[in-house]
Every structure is written in structure tokens, then in C-alpha cells.
């Protein structure tokens, strides 16, 4: 009527969108990503092959020195809506003023699933390229709670494989690969020390501690004398125990002998009024993210450990 008319939906476009969504539901990748990566993988070993990477020049040189080639940038992302979990402390009258703590399983699982989905997609992208590893993985998380109750988690890095391995042929099974947060320099130093990365591991726990009436009164009374709120301190240890055990269980499954570069994030909310629900008590978000390592024979050329004085 006014010169624009909505285009009738393209049946092919709709079919592709539907298939992408099915893939995502199964924890997989949307079609455009799969097709692009397959195209890139097919070009490996031919003159058309081109790699992109966010490695710096020095990192690229060091990774190549270890006998790897860069294959391309890979990423994984997931938007996730956290479920609702009631905090028992909202009915303080019923629990008769006793202290108890419990894990908020819905929130723990929500944060955990979002991270797993994103890292899983990163790994699938690398598998499509025939990679045996991903270095320099950077992790980003963001809570969009105010707008939609959603969190975002994304990861990106550079896929690499050993130079002597042939390009992955269409239809052959994916190679075993490692993810690591290490930069090119760290990867090189780690190999020198006789270790190799086996994977990025995440352990988390959201823990809620209902305070006893006694400690609650201390919390609410500004002029109470100096004293420790032992129940809150204990809640942190309980959260730490669950998160660290999860981290190490996964590390054990991957055959790691240790975890380095573990980032510890312990966030406490206490006695505050939440955005949606009123929080009466202490809530701990305990998150650990690190890279598992295992023994591996060091490369034949060993750099001596020396002291230098940079003239700058």
C-alpha cells in the first residue's frame, strides 16, 4: 500500500533457522558456523588455506616453535536464563531462628550449564577444524539480570594442531583436543617444564546460609560489639568445598595431575534486599576456573633459567 510490503518468508531460510535451533537445543552449533568451519577445514593443505588468529606475533612464533600450526579463531557462546529459586530464609518465622545452610542447586546448575554450553561449543568449532588444541581461551561472563534474568557466557581462542598431522578429512571422527587459557608464551614455558594442558575446568557453587536469630541480630544492630559472624564464615568454606571438589573431580576425569592459573571468584551478598526477592541471610557465589595440566616429556631443546636485567 505504501510501497513496502513484507517479503513472504523464504521456505529455505525458515528451514535453516529451524535446523540451527535444533542444533542449539542439543548443545551444538548453528548452521552458518558449521558450514564456514567445514569450508575452512576443507581448504587446509591447499593453496587457498588461510588462518585467522588472535595470537600476537610472539605468541604465533612460540606456538609454531613447539611444532603447531594455527588453524583459525573459534568461539562458543551461550545466553542462559537462570531459574527461580526460593530462599528459605524468606519464611524466617517457621524455621525457629536456627542456622542452616544449603546449596541453591537451581542457580549452581544454571551458571554451570551456561559455562559448559559455551565451552562445549568452542570445543565443537575446534573439532570441525581438525584441531588438537585451543590456546589463549578468553572467558567472558555478564549478568543481564536487571533486563531479563539472563546471563551470558562466551569463550574464544585460537585452534591449533601439530604440524605433521594431516588435515581432517570430511567424515572422519574428531580428534582429541585440549582447551587452555594459556597465552602462547605460557604454553611454551609449560612445555619446557615438562607439562601439557589437558582442558579448562570450572567448578562453581551458589550457597545460601540462613542466619540464626542471634547472629541476625548482630548483623542488624550497628552498635553491637566487635565479633565474628561465624555462620557466614562457615558458609564460605562449605561453598568452597563443593566448588573445589567439582573442579578436581572433572580434572581427575581428564587425567590431569594438577590445576594452575585457577581464578578464584568468591562473592558474598549478605542481609541485602535483592532485586526480585528479599534476601535474609548470606549468599555465596563461589566460582573456580582453571586449566588442568598433566606430565608430558619436555621438548629436546631446553632453555636455561637465567636472570636478566632489561635495559629499559
Amino acid at each position: 500500500m505504501f510501497g513496502f510490503r513484507p517479503q513472504p518468508p523464504d521456505a529455505e531460510h525458515l528451514r535453516r533457522e529451524e535446523e540451527s535451533r535444533r542444533n542449539l537445543t542439543a548443545g551444538g552449533l548453528p548452521l552458518p558456523a558449521v558450514e564456514r568451519l567445514k569450508r575452512l577445514a576443507a581448504q587446509q593443505g591447499t593453496p587457498q588455506h588461510l588462518f585467522s588468529s588472535d595470537l600476537s606475533v610472539a605468541e604465533l612464533a612460540l606456538v609454531e616453535d613447539l611444532g603447531f600450526v594455527a588453524l583459525g579463531q573459534v568461539m562458543g557462546t551461550s545466553f542462559y536464563q537462570l531459574g527461580m529459586q526460593w530462599r528459605t530464609a524468606n519464611w524466617r518465622d517457621k524455621d525457629q531462628g536456627k542456622a542452616f545452610g544449603y546449596e541453591m542447586e537451581v542457580l549452581t546448575a544454571g551458571w554451570g550449564n551456561a559455562r559448559r554450553l559455551a565451552l562445549g561449543r568452542l570445543q565443537q568449532e575446534a573439532e570441525l577444524l581438525g584441531a588438537t588444541g585451543v590456546v589463549g581461551v578468553k572467558l567472558k561472563e555478564k549478568a543481564h539480570v536487571k533486563e531479563s534474568g539472563a546471563i551470558e557466557f562466551s569463550a574464544h581462542g585460537t585452534a591449533i594442531r601439530e604440524r605433521e598431522l594431516p588435515p581432517l578429512r570430511e567424515g572422519s571422527p574428531p580428534r582429541k583436543l585440549f582447551l587452555s587459557t594459556f597465552s602462547g608464551q605460557e604454553f611454551w614455558v609449560l612445555r619446557q617444564a615438562g607439562f601439557r594442558p589437558v582442558g579448562i575446568l570450572v567448578g562453581n557453587c551458589v550457597y545460601f546460609q540462613v542466619l540464626s536469630n542471634d547472629q541476625w541480630r548482630v548483623l542488624m544492630r550497628l552498635n553491637a560489639p566487635n565479633q565474628e559472624l561465624t555462620e557466614v564464615s562457615e558458609a564460605m568454606y562449605a561453598a568452597r568445598r563443593l566448588a573445589l571438589n567439582r573442579l578436581e573431580e572433572q580434572a581427575g576425569k581428564l587425567g590431569a595431575t594438577g590445576l594452575v592459573d585457577v581464578q578464584v571468584d568468591a562473592q558474598l551478598k549478605v542481609g541485602q534486599t535483592g532485586d526480585e526477592t528479599e534476601t535474609y541471610g548470606a549468599e555465596y557465589h563461589f566460582t573456580l576456573i582453571g586449566t588442568g595440566i598433566a606430565d608430558a616429556p619436555p621438548p629436546p631443546r631446553r632453555a636455561p633459567l637465567d636472570i636478566v636485567l632489561p635495559l629499559r
Binding site: 594459556f182 605460557e186 604454553f187 614455558v189 609449560l190 617444564a193 568454606y237 568452597r240 568445598r241 573445589l244 571438589n245 573442579l247 578436581e248 580434572a251 581427575g252 590431569a256 595431575t257 594438577g258 590445576l259 594452575v260 592459573d261 585457577v262 581464578q263 578464584v264 573456580l288 582453571g290
Partner: peptide, 23 residues
């Protein structure tokens, strides 16, 4: 928790917040 770390059968697993260079 510390007992659980030490008691894992077969292998000693360590967790550390040291960077690779520090390690």
C-alpha cells in the same frame, strides 16, 4: 575438604592459583 583432596585414590592432584610462570 582437605582430606578429600589428599585422599583421592591413585594420584595426587593439586589446585593452584599460580600463573604458569610462577608455577
Amino acid at each position: 575438604r582437605l582430606g578429600e583432596n589428599r585422599g583421592r585414590p591413585g594420584r595426587r592432584l593439586f589446585t593452584s592459583d599460580l600463573s604458569v610462570n610462577e608455577f
